[in-house]
Design a binder for these strands. Structure first.
Lengths: 155, 155
DNA sequence: TTTGAAAACAGTAAAAC
DNA sequence: GTTTTACTGTTTTCAAA
């Protein structure tokens, strides 16, 4: 889907406050509430907006252990196989294939170190896995997970 | 702040749908709308809920280049110094000090490779920096950034 | 303390243009 | 795209568990 400037402005406002009313958004982007609603509905149904959530500090809610795991796979492994293997674990909050030595990097949230180890072991036991390299998070410094838009439209 | 089971259930619903009405949340957790509102207000003012946002695919909105950057610092570098250096870049969506060889790992969103390189170079030019190691994302496989709660309460 | 019910208020959604 | 209007959700008050 193609976004115009107004769509980008609306998304910018919603990134800051996902519960902003259509009238509040309209005030900031120069549109009436119904016009904003129609655009938001269109952005949601087209998939440009995947959904709405709440921002919660993982540790507050019980995810007190966090880490990044680089995975190294057999040469023949496809991204689809990696996806299938990691997607079944809710503890894997993100996974991407990457350039460099590793084939993919996973971001994992667990309730404690034992839990973290269990998840990594279950992933490491996949047939295509060669080895894993874990880096446990000591202290989270920045956690924005997308706070703004390129060129800072929308702030 | 201490969360009870109802707070956790409410957060679980809001993680799935950050724009759920108080009545909808109430139906799922067994509370009236005003009771839910009071709890959500308390969770927000206590900071347990940091805010509400929209889930957007970064590439849809113009962040088409993504990568992880491991940074290696002088032995005397504090987490505070790293935070100060990376927090000024809106492209850094997360940063954490980690175990292992690297001192910290950054997650960066940029509009293109040139932009990505500029951000890494600006960070690499900090006085305490020894070296950086970048891994560019090829394909994002999983992007949940926190979809559930430990023990899967709230689903 | 925290909850539920009711009422006043504000926002949403579907018409109209 | 805006305006209007009926409807739904929010927010406050107050009484009760």
């Amino acid at each position: 889907m193609q976004l115009d400037q107004l769509d980008r402005l609306i998304i910018g406002v919603l990134l800051e406050d996902g519960r902003a009313t259509f009238a509040q958004i309209g005030d900031r982007v120069g549109l009436s509430a119904p016009a904003v609603k129609r655009r938001v509905d269109r952005l949601v149904s087209s998939g440009a907006i995947a959904g709405f959530t709440v921002r919660v500090d993982p540790s507050v809610v019980g995810w007190s252990t966090e880490g990044y795991v680089e995975i190294y796979c057999r040469g023949s492994t496809t991204p689809g196989e990696i996806l299938k293997a990691v997607d079944k674990h809710p503890e894997v909050v993100s996974a991407s294939t990457v350039t460099g030595e590793a084939d993919a990097i996973l971001h994992i949230l667990a309730s404690d170190i034992r839990h973290f180890e269990q998840v990594v072991e279950r992933i490491a036991s996949e047939p295509f896995m060669v080895r894993t390299k874990s880096e446990l998070v000591l202290s989270p410094l920045v956690r924005r997970e997308q706070g703004s838009l390129p060129t800072d439209i929308g702030s």
